[in-house]
Design a protein around this nucleic acid. Structure first.
Lengths: 189, 189
DNA sequence: GGAAAAACTTACTAAGTAGTCAGTTTCAGG
DNA sequence: CCTGAAACTGACTACTTAGTAAGTTTTTCC
């Protein structure tokens, strides 16, 4: 909104995060960002030399977000199930605004991403997986959650249900996402 | 390869199908197709007036493919589990060539697709879902497969595991896809 | 208040995009 | 063999893209 503010860089990332989940890496442009911020596209280039630098910034931001969420959940007094539901809530929010998750977005566009950021996508997924894995293990230990496969495999099953669930929700509607969400949770109880 | 052949139109669709699963709708161009076929981009426009017509052709082709597969499986003497594995095999092939499935591809790019083809994506997913649903129902009836949720919900769980599974495989490797595949099948036994 | 650094604009480039149209080649059928 | 339709080429357009360079405004801090 207000140009020439000290947090333009953060605003660019904020809008970039939204655009990449809404349209994907190849379908948004510097013009989309500069228009929304009422600045010129050269100003965006001032903060992020190239599109791959912007993508790197966006991914770094998501990693901080995930790490913060992980710490927050770990320090909380919630049950494992409640922690899991807190995480899943993020996806429910996405399903409501026709967005897909950042993981599904970069995974879909992976073959077109600049080499310099591919490694970051691996790290991001690693963060998300280990966060869920910890919650599942805690839940199993405390007898709150039940599953037979390894915690990692269970994590992958849940994460793919959610990631593709919000993708599907765009086309076949939010009801399908809700069915997936409920079934995925009840499988773990 | 050979230009001026009578099946240029089919060749365009063949290459388009590959490109859309490899890079997504927004990341391939008429130039990619014309180069591979050694023809000019105007020739591609001769067969498909615009990119949205090409996408429509690609989706129609996938629908035929699914319908044919559905009939073929129904007429076969395979067990429900074997039918399911035949379907899942398609995804394993995708995971090996860094491709994602057409459903995940159009779902990821959905917000950027021309309005005229959005309906077709709904139909395509409907076809895939009902095909798997039938197999699951048959398996349950014959006592070969076991699940508590509705067949449709079970179908959605499986389809999302597979669709996001091949997406994830691009980044974190094929091992994760294999773990998902095995777990998803054994859940139904 | 003045200098230096940060933030931004103006004005541009080069490349790639889908798409058009007039003309040429190829091919099938009478 | 000739004609007409189908398939394709050559040469273009209008537009969008990421990206750059030089100059201007704003902010910070001594």
């Amino acid at each position: 909104m207000t140009a020439r503010s000290t947090d333009t860089k953060q605003e660019i990332i904020r809008i970039g995060k939204s655009l990449i989940r809404m349209y994907g890496y190849n379908a948004f442009s510097y013009a989309d960002i500069s228009k929304e911020l009422n600045i010129k596209n050269a100003a965006v280039h001032y903060h992020f030399r190239g599109k791959e630098d912007l993508l790197a910034g966006i991914l770094d931001n998501y990693m901080e977000e995930y790490q913060q969420l992980g710490k927050h959940l770990q320090a909380s007094s919630l049950t494992a199930l409640q922690k899991l539901e807190k995480f899943i809530e993020r996806y429910s929010t996405l399903a409501e605004c026709n967005c897909i998750c950042i993981i599904g977005s970069v995974a879909s566009d992976y073959n077109t991403l600049p080499e310099s950021v591919k490694e970051k996508t691996t790290q991001l997924i690693g963060l998300a997986v280990s966060m869920i894995e910890k919650i599942l293990l805690e839940g199993k230990r405390k007898g709150e959650l039940h599953f037979e496969e390894s915690a990692r495999t269970r994590t992958l099953l849940l994460l793919t249900n959610l990631a593709a669930g919000v993708q599907l929700a765009r086309i076949s509607g939010k009801k399908d996402y809700d069915a997936i969400r409920k079934a995925a949770i009840s499988q773990l109880k």
